[in-house]
Amino acid sequence: MTNNVFLAASICLFLLVTNSFAQKDDLPLHLFSYDKTVPLALTDSVIGHEDNVAIHRISFASPVADRVNGLLFVPSGKGPFAGILLQHGAPGTAMNQTPRGVYVARHGAVVVAISAPFAERSGQAIQLTPADSVEQVTYMINLQRAVDLLLSRPDVDPTRLGYVGRSHGGAMGGLLAGIESRLKTYILAVPDGGLISHFTIASGEPADQLPIPVEQRKRWLAAMMPIEPIRFIHRATSATLFIQSARQDEAVSTFASEQLHKAAPAGTVVKWYDAGHRLNSQSYVDQLSWFHDKLGTTAPGPADQNGPNFPPPATKP
């Protein structure tokens, strides 16, 4: 079978499976179960303060791996606060989430950002081998443990929990929404349907973006298909969803975005932005407004209009 024929077949299979699973619940949910009695064994140290937000470096035990590393952002005051998971893209780590964490936390939320498993090792974030599926399952379990961490804090209101993730973190939020019922709302910024969607689907036509041998591709697709986020997002009926997509997105095609929108449960709010994959300042203001409406955090004000205080891009010498 030629590469293009195989890829076309895989895309057809992908669309067939995602459409069929929109009506079914025979999904491998057992993969995301974990021993909830494992102690968090949390380590926590304050590493700075910004805009009345304390920034903590944290680490806690994973039931299926070693340690989960990340950042914790705690606003001043006594609370109770909302609790929000904040997830990075690929490649990336929790450690570069400080501008976004502070931006959200100063509105009355304890924010947890953890590093994805791929951020804890060397090499490419996505390996295009079945190891990616192992890491994705581990990631979901670690995110559920991050919810456990939020719920263990007396300054967090357990009825006001949310999630915001961008790019890969947005796609993973679609998967988490299908398996984690304790969060009240999810914001998925510039997501696609998952790694298969990202690497094999462009404008609805075959797009050979997997420069690997055919047999390796078959093994990778077989490992990733069962846990592709687009297959799970329809189960997110106990939470509200806000999906932010970009019309000039250079990383996520309009077709891939629309496939995820179609798979999402009824009532999902979708907003398109005239922007690229990085979105724009309005998208961040909209996130604050969404959390204000759904979780009771404070509304965005004049100081929020430019978005998070990202450092300027590095200049070439």
Rank of each mutant, 00 (worst) to 15 (best):
Q97T: 14
K316I: 14
V134M: 09
L183E: 03
Q282F: 00
P154Q: 04
T138D: 07
G70I: 10
P39K: 00
H30G: 12
K262F: 10
R247Q: 15
F255S: 06
H107V: 11
S289C: 02
Q124D: 15
L86G: 00
R182Y: 01
S238H: 15
E228N: 03
V134C: 06
L161H: 07
V285C: 12
I114E: 03
G194Q: 07
H107S: 11
S33H: 08
A177P: 02
A8R: 14
Q87C: 13
I187L: 13
I126G: 00
D35G: 06
T2R: 08
T43L: 01
G83I: 10
T43A: 06
P191M: 04
I187C: 07
D26I: 15
G194N: 08
P91H: 13
V270C: 04
D51P: 00
H198Q: 14
G101P: 09
I196E: 03
T93L: 13
R219Y: 04
G301F: 02
T185D: 10
R121P: 00
A113Y: 06
Y103H: 14
S238G: 11
T93F: 01
V111R: 04
N306E: 11
I201K: 04
I55G: 11
Y163T: 12
V102D: 10
D25H: 09
A125K: 08
P313Q: 07
L16Y: 08
